[in-house]
Design a protein around this nucleic acid. Structure first.
Length: 436
RNA sequence: UCCCCGGUAGCUCAAUCGGUAGAGCACCUGGCUGUUAACCAGGGGGUUGGGGGUUCGAGACCCUCCCGGGGAGCCA
């Protein structure tokens, strides 16, 4: 076969030319002697037209073998046509079947016939080929790219945190344990403590990578393995990172709206809910949040932590992400700096996404005093020996510093408007599920 | 670990008071020279998750086990 090899996304530039497209059969329709084959190649979808009178019989007959997901190389002339989805179609001249596909297990997607997740999850490797999952992965790519661009433009250095760690970062959640040459080691649940070290070397740093929680959580907001981005800034205090976080999230949303309009449309996302996401975000204290809950009839005592329902109720009050700051220190991690105005409070903040997507950011100002931190180790009953390196950061030129972590999958789920975070990651690791 | 919902054709779901298991999609056969989730006509396809019980009779009611889902706790 001749013809320039092109991708569907650039086909508009080749109208009138003979081109070759390499992809997979997405769907087909026939009207007898005019047949339509929809091909996808990873960059888009293309309608190919097979006209009996214009094709060799043996090519025209190949239509019968084009079951869903058959891989094909097609050659034809690109032309504009209003009747073609996307406005451009290929008048087919030749077709070669590369690999057959018999009884592809995911049926053509109709609104009333979407297989259950119990069916789809074990075939995630094939599920990824479907239109919505394809759109989601492209949005994920843009979210990740935007993250790196934002921090790069703002003078941050990317520092990779270790995956294998000698001890818990926060000491609370259950970790995955592994054997490290006879020693116990754990899969990281946060790169934060390492970023605190790195920001004392580089000023502004961030890490980006997977984190692991062995919690028995089985909800639409939880994965055992998820990705997190964690910036940390030396000489920053709580207001600085609240401001940074709202600019950061706004930038991500803006980039997705710019670059992934089509994908959001495929997902039927109401983008009017994203268009006004820009700084400043509403900022309320924990105490004010508790008042909102009480006004809404929740049975809630000051001092408790918010559950899923509470978070949803609070975020419902606002049309963009809301920052809740200064939680009771007791329900927060040991490294949080206490509020000098009220030592019962921690200088921390969470960002709650709208529409019930929950907490997408958690962070705060870190305790920078050696004496205070040592006291905290006793209070939280943590082994000081394991954290000597962390205490060193306070022994050698300590400064105020602050940072936060943003959950990638929750952010993608919110922006995309999907129900469950498991669709925001290519191969989700779920409770007691690690296949494929 | 606990609570709630569910399991019927390959997929999504029906099945009235307990009375002969059905539809759409997929698949197969035929038709159609512009289809848009194509359409039209026909066809094959079921130990109703397993076991036990009640009953003249159970997909449905009872007991029990298994599997799936999402919620609590915990968290991004």
């Amino acid at each position: 076969m001749k013809g320039r090899i092109v991708y569907i996304e650039e086909l508009k530039k080749h109208v009138g030319e003979e081109v070759e497209i390499r992809g997979w059969v997405y769907n087909k329709r026939s009207s007898g002697k005019v047949r339509f084959v929809i091909i996808r190649d990873g960059t888009g979808f293309l309608q190919c037209v097979m006209v009996k009178s214009n094709l060799a019989d043996e090519v025209f007959e190949l239509y019968d073998e084009l079951s869903l997901e058959t891989s094909v190389i097609v050659k034809g002339k690109a032309r504009e046509d209003r009747r073609a989805p996307g406005g451009v179609e290929l008048e087919l001249q030749d077709l070669k079947i590369m690999g057959k596909s018999v009884n592809f297990p995911i049926p053509k997607v109709r609104e009333d016939n979407i297989p259950d997740v119990g069916v789809l999850l074990p075939i995630r490797h094939l599920w990824l080929r479907t239109r919505k999952q394809w759109a989601l992965m492209r949005i994920r790519h843009t979210v990740e790219k935007a993250i790196h661009d934002f921090f790069d433009k703002n003078g941050f250095i990317r520092i990779d945190a270790p995956i294998l760690t000698p001890s818990a970062c926060e000491g609370t959640t259950t970790l995955f344990e592994t054997d490290y040459f006879g020693e116990k080691a754990y899969l990281t649940q946060s790169g934060q403590l390492y970023m605190e070290a790195a920001c004392m070397a580089h000023g502004r740093v961030y890490c980006f990578g997977p984190t692991f929680r062995a919690e028995k959580s089985k909800t639409r907001r939880h994965l055992m393995e998820f990705w997190m981005v964690e910036p940390e800034i030396a000489y920053a205090e709580l207001p600085d990172i609240m401001e940074n976080a709202e600019r950061f999230v706004s930038y991500i949303v803006e980039r997705v709206l710019e670059e992934r309009k089509e994908e959001l449309k495929t997902l039927e996302r109401d983008i009017s809910k994203l268009e006004h996401v820009s700084p400043p975000f509403p900022k309320i204290s924990y105490t004010e949040a508790v008042e909102i809950l009480k006004k809404k009839g929740f049975k809630f005592e000051w001092g408790e932590d918010f559950g899923g329902d509470e978070e949803t109720a609070i975020s419902e009050e606002f049309d963009k992400p809301v920052i809740v700051h200064r939680y009771p220190a007791k329900i927060k991690a040991f490294y949080m700096k206490r509020d000098p105005q009220n030592p019962e409070l921690a200088l921390c903040m969470d960002m709650l996404a709208p529409e019930g997507y929950g907490e997408i950011i958690g962070g705060g100002q870190r305790e920078d005093s050696l004496e205070e931190l040592e006291k905290r180790f006793d209070e939280y009953d943590l082994p000081k020996e394991a954290y000597e390196w962390y205490l060193d950061l306070r022994r050698y030129g300590t400064v105020p510093h602050a940072g936060y972590g943003l959950g990638i999958e929750r952010t993608i789920a919110w922006i995309s408007g999907i129900k469950h975070v498991r669709e925001a990651i290519p191969f989700p690791r779920l409770l007691e599920k690690i296949y494929p």
